[in-house]
Amino acid sequence: MSESESGLKLPKYSPIPEGEDPSNFAEYRSTKYRFPKRPLFHLPPSIGEITGPLLGEDRVGPHDHDLTAHGHGEPLGERIIVHGRLLDSGGRPIPGQLIEIWQANACGRYVHKVDQHPAPLDPNFTGVGRTVTDAEGRYRFITIKPGAYPWGNHHNAWRPQHIHFSITGRALPQRLVTQMYFPGDPLFVQDPIFNAVRDEKARNRMISRLDLEETVPEWALAYQWDIVLRGPDETPNIETAEEHG
């Protein structure tokens, strides 16, 4: 909490982790003309940037977390459970937050007109899901393990299997769009998007863990993945937050 002379009390968020500035990563070709060359300007703490849209329960239907339940029948592929907790960098759970995901189907094909990969679409799988974290910050999706797919970045380029995640968080510093990967994927060694995160420890935080305890016997393997957002140095106005929650 920083307090200015006027008594304006604003939560203070930890800085963007080092090495995470938006920048060029030459081996990921699309970055070349899409990163600002001028250094980012410093913005002092301001109410508009330490608040943000509070998106929660009212955005989610009862089956939105189950991506295998959106068609007339079961989608093809390997059914999996993806679950974990949404935490801030102080380790505190972040309850009531919207998580949006999208992914390719088991064949590595997206429901998107630009995706030209000659693999079949699955009429029973759109690859879109939403959920809201519970009081302990937990989330859980049921889906199909996405396939690897080719992309034109370099000769014989294939993306490792991944699921896209979008979290708005409690305030703009917590806004995160990222990708969840699967353990042991042999394609990590040639994927410039995964490796665009320079710090190895940070990079490895994008890999989920096979979770046999949450695996449902005779039904679906589970993968566990915690998501950690930049946290305020202390949680302000807890009572207020609950009152308006």
Binding site: Q179, F194, R230
Partner: peptide
């Protein structure tokens, strides 16, 4: 189009606690 990309090192297996990095949308 680059002819070769990588090889990057295989990930280590030990998870550490910290902020989840951003990836392109």
């Amino acid at each position: 189009t680059p002819d070769t990309v990588g090889p990057y090192p295989l990930p280590s297996v030990e998870p550490t606690f910290g902020p989840t990095p951003s990836q392109t949308v």
